[in-house]
């Protein structure tokens, strides 16, 4: 699993006991996740009944336009926002995260789930050294100073920070955007979590650095056997990275399926619209951005939230909210999904 020049990250690979059920239990099971925030006019539901599963070693991309609730979902999974009220089910390796008390939840954060926040420029504390911030991920879980330092240096080194030992003493402003992003990644994975949630880890970076960061995450998944949720609004980016894609619109999952299928034959009109607006190497033709603007949480249309922008909308779309159902390999929440020639109509 490791080449000679790769630092061992000491992963314990679970060995199934004889006779154990070998169908893998998903690492993360989210069902019916609903998140609302208080506002002057009462609670506003940002995420409504969102489902997601991630297996060990699986790379799942969570895609959606700006404001669709991706970051809110990520923070809700770790219960980071005490102002948000979170309901539904979040199971990590069978543990119901929403049922844990504060202390138990803290033990999960960082150690079981690593979160890489959206903006590398603000995720690092400007007045504390890089080293202390990476070490903090271990120190808060009771790892001793010497050990934490050793592992922080190893991880920074593994993530391609040159002269990591010395750079531990540096401060965030002394790092470029790409280097900061690596430090943020180091903070998220230094405690070897089972699940990494990376919120737009590449948005602020130029294309070359984007690729470097993605391939780092990619190799970590293999090396550590982590599951990854990669949050992005860039469908083009996930094609080469993800095993599965979950598409989010206005706080709801609209389509979720294997990346190849989803690219080849999107079922949900929103997914197909998104794909049409992404430049692709395998296809010529003009880009077609989706008409209209995303639904705001405070004024989401009833029925299917996408209906004002949807070319396939019919009368039922304005009244009934479509629930996800299995079509082929994907789960699709749409009354009138796109169907392939030869496939039976609804």
């Amino acid at each position: 699993m490791k080449g000679p020049d790769i630092v061992s990250l000491n992963v314990e690979v679970p060995v199934p006991a004889p006779g154990e059920d070998l169908t893998p239990r998903p690492l993360l099971e989210v069902s019916g996740l609903t998140v609302s925030y208080p506002s002057a006019t009462g609670p506003v539901e940002i995420v409504s009944g969102f489902d997601l599963t991630v297996a060990r070693g699986e790379r799942v991309a969570l895609v959606g336009e700006s404001g669709s609730g991706k970051s809110v979902t990520a923070r809700a999974l770790l219960r980071l926002d005490h102002r948000a009220s979170v309901s539904g089910q979040v199971r990590l390796d069978g543990t119901d995260l929403l049922a844990l008390d504060d202390r138990e939840m803290r033990a999960q954060r960082g150690r079981r789930i690593g979160l890489m926040l959206q903006d590398p420029m603000t995720t690092l504390n400007p007045v504390r050294s890089i080293g202390s911030q990476v070490m903090e991920s271990l120190r808060v879980h009771g790892v001793g100073k010497t050990e934490a330092r050793k592992r922080a240096v190893e991880t920074l080194d593994r993530l391609g920070i040159p002269d990591a030992e010395r750079r531990m003493r540096a401060y965030p402003h002394e790092f470029s955007g790409g280097m900061r992003q690596r430090v943020c990644l180091a903070m998220a994975i230094v405690a070897h979590p089972d699940l990494l949630i990376a919120d737009e880890p590449t948005t602020a970076l130029d294309v070359r650095v984007q690729e470097q960061v993605l391939s780092l995450i990619d190799s970590l998944v293999t090396e550590l056997g982590m599951g990854v949720v990669l949050i992005t609004h860039d469908l083009g980016l996930v094609a080469g990275f993800a095993d599965r894609v979950a598409v989010m619109y206005a706080g709801r999952g609209v389509e979720c399926g294997p990346v190849g299928e989803l690219y080849r034959s999107p079922r949900h009109p929103y997914t197909s619209g998104l794909l049409a607006s992404v430049p692709r190497v395998d296809r010529d033709g003009a880009l077609a951005p989706i008409a209209g603007s995303p639904a705001q949480p405070t004024s989401r249309p009833g029925g299917c939230a996408f209906h004002p922008r949807c070319a396939r909308a019919e009368a039922d779309c304005t009244e009934d909210r479509p629930d996800p159902r299995r079509i082929g390999t994907a789960d699709v929440a749409c009354h009138h999904p796109l169907v392939l020639a030869g496939e039976g109509n609804r």
Binding site: L78, Q108, R109, L117, T122, T123, Q133, E136, S137, M187
Partner: peptide, 23 residues
């Protein structure tokens, strides 16, 4: 955001207040 990041690492509220607030 670094405060959220600290919480995401599993830091206690006291650590967050002192190391990322008062500091």
């Amino acid at each position: 955001d670094h405060v959220t990041a600290a919480r995401a690492k599993g830091a206690r509220e006291r650590t967050v207040l002192l190391q990322h607030g008062l500091r």
